[in-house]
Amino acid sequence: MEDIRKLQLTTKIPVRWGDLDRYGHLNNTLYFRYFEQARIEWIEQKDFRVDPDEAEGAVIVHADCTFLIPVNYPATAIVKVFAGQPGRSSVMNWYELYVEGDERLFATGSAKIVWIDNRSGKSLSLPSKLREGL
């Protein structure tokens, strides 16, 4: 099956002083938070509320990150979200993290998103309005 990734969203996230580890680099856990923020913005851009009180929504079943270049303070992270071909109940997201004013790629990541019934926890078919544009 051909891997087709389509750019879905680009967002900017300011790096805060408190986001750094003792070496002055962006803490490894924050890369996942930045990817999460971009993913939430992408889902909301598709007109879905990210709220556990909603009947259905998205969860991730796998996430990863490859750290290529340390991000230092001060900086503004630029996160690009790409989506792949949708399955019945899931879709892959890929992330690229850059620093504003620098063309180098600082980190990459991915997450497998599954659409679920929030009450039962069971997977559901991806909504058609989420599939649009994938």
Score class of each variant (00 low, 15 high):
T10Y: 00
T10Q: 10
T11H: 01
T11C: 12
T11V: 14
T11I: 12
K12D: 05
I13D: 00
P14R: 10
P14W: 02
P14K: 09
P14E: 06
V15Q: 04
R16T: 03
R16N: 07
R16K: 13
R16P: 02
W17T: 06
W17L: 13
W17P: 01
W17E: 03
G18Q: 13
G18P: 00
D19C: 07
D19K: 02
L20C: 08
L20S: 07
L20H: 06
L20V: 05
L20N: 05
D21I: 08
D21V: 12
D21M: 10
D21K: 11
D21L: 11
R22Y: 10
R22P: 03
Y23R: 11
Y23G: 11
Y23A: 14
Y23F: 15
Y23P: 01
G24A: 07
G24H: 06
G24I: 06
G24N: 08
H25S: 06
H25Y: 14
H25G: 09
H25V: 03
L26A: 07
L26D: 04
N27F: 12
N27M: 11
N27E: 09
N28P: 06
T29S: 15
T29F: 11
T29C: 13
L30D: 04
L30M: 15
L30E: 12
Y31R: 11
F32S: 10
F32K: 03
F32G: 05
F32L: 15
R33C: 14
Y34I: 05
Y34A: 15
Y34P: 06
Y34T: 03
F35Y: 14
E36Q: 13
E36L: 10
E36D: 15
E36I: 09
E36K: 08
Q37K: 11
Q37P: 01
Q37N: 12
Q37H: 13
A38S: 12
I40T: 14
E41N: 13
E41P: 02
W42Y: 15
W42I: 01
W42N: 07
W42R: 01
I43F: 10
I43N: 04
I43C: 03
I43M: 12
E44Q: 15
Q45D: 14
Q45R: 10
Q45L: 13
K46L: 09
K46Y: 01
K46N: 08
D47N: 14
D47W: 03
D47V: 02
F48H: 02
F48S: 02
R49A: 13
R49Q: 09
R49S: 13
V50A: 00
V50H: 02
V50L: 01
D51Y: 00
P52K: 00
P52E: 03
P52R: 03
P52V: 02
P52D: 00
